[in-house]
């Protein structure tokens, strides 16, 4: 069933939802952007609907709610250590279909790979309920339709924020109980049907083709263009990689924590072992590693999907204007070449 709340009723609705949920949404940080007078929009806990940004693509993905850029794993004191704690209150997270689909991709790694379930991820995932936001396919970097991530049914309720009302389509019965005071309406969420940008996914038939594609000169162009800053992987909806760091608090050598920090396969040191040995030393090698993970390796391991939801944030964030969709075109062209050589 669908319900409508007027602007005046919004505060009351928020209060009611807050009793059950911690509510997360994209929040605007004014003038915090990379350039003068630009903002960033990133996820955080909100205390009123007005704080959320619902009609614009967030700069950073929703994944940060479930797997923060950094989090404490263990706290160390003199002669003991303890696991970090976490609230058990359910979370209501406003998210678009691409971001919700990205969580399915991440879960394959965090909550399954090798039979190990990451406790820190799982305890967050157990709390999460999604409030679907419709998407207006903001810009020409989006290609969710090509990735099949433009729709989802993994949400408790869909929301539409208009100038004078909030429209809610409650899919989950427990959620419906919270919003049934609203006026009945016929709102149904709409999904993106077409993007300006469309991609053709590369088909890599066998290991021989894969290794030929790895050796293809197309990757060398990134040696001059990519600065290996890792902005693409931090902005990525699906990237999961992290590093573990132990830190000491201030001057006290006896107290500290073991912390998980987001890591990037694009940044030097990602593969460096004790003693200094490392793999994939050039920017081109690193780009190749990332692209093949997104569009071959992940699917080869987990079967269901590629490791990209077409959110386009990596394109938005790259300071060198490198585009994942253009790189896909180059991969397809290289694969055509390899096929002809056979």
């Amino acid at each position: 069933m669908s319900y409508k709340f007027t602007k005046e009723e919004a505060a009351g609705l928020f209060a009611k939802l807050s009793e059950k949920f911690d509510i997360y949404a994209p929040i605007r940080f004014k003038d915090a952007g990379r350039y003068a007078e630009t903002d960033i929009i990133k996820y955080g806990k909100i205390s009123s609907f007005d704080e959320g940004v619902y009609n614009e693509k967030s700069t950073y993905p929703m994944k940060e709610v479930l797997s923060p850029i950094q989090q404490a794993l263990f706290y160390f004191t003199e002669d003991e250590y303890r696991e970090s704690k976490c609230s058990t209150k359910p979370m209501l997270v406003f998210a678009r279909p691409c971001d919700i689909n990205a969580m399915k991709v991440q879960a394959k790694i965090y909550a399954g790979n090798g039979g190990f379930i990451d406790m820190y991820y799982e305890r967050m995932r157990e709390r999460v309920h999604y409030a679907l936001l419709e998407c207006n396919a903001d810009d020409d970097t989006c290609f969710c339709v090509s990735m099949g991530t433009n729709t989802t049914d993994d949400y408790d309720a869909a929301f539409r924020f208009t100038d004078d009302a909030i429209l809610i389509d409650a899919k989950d019965s427990a959620f419906e109980a919270l919003v049934k005071d609203g006026k009945a309406c016929d709102f149904k969420p709409e999904f993106v049907k077409e993007n300006i940008t469309k991609v053709t996914l590369p088909v890599i038939e066998d290991k021989e083709t894969l290794n030929k594609l790895k050796a293809h000169p197309m990757w060398e162009q990134f040696n001059g263009r990519c600065i290996s800053c890792g902005a693409c992987t931090i902005a990525c909806s699906t990237c999961t990689c992290f590093t573990t760091r132990d830190i000491i608090y201030g001057d006290n050598q006896e107290v500290g924590e073991r912390r998980r920090v987001s890591a990037s396969c694009q940044v030097d040191g990602f593969t460096t072992v004790a003693g200094g040995g490392s793999y994939r030393k050039t920017a081109g090698d690193k780009m190749r590693f990332k692209m093949l993970h997104k569009f071959h390796d992940y699917k080869a391991r987990f079967k269901d999907s590629d490791m990209c939801v077409g959110c386009g944030r990596c394109i938005n964030r790259c300071p060198e204007l490198i585009s994942i969709t253009e790189t896909l075109k180059k991969m397809n062209a290289a694969l055509e070449e390899i096929k002809k050589e056979k």
């Binding site: 790694i109 790979n113 999961t240 992290f242 890591a263 072992v273 490392s278």
Partner: peptide, 15 residues
């Protein structure tokens, strides 16, 4: 290089 040893951190992945 390994950070987690349980298939989560991604450092040791090849293909």
């Amino acid at each position: 290089k390994m950070s987690c040893a349980v298939g989560k951190c991604g450092h040791c992945r090849i293909d």
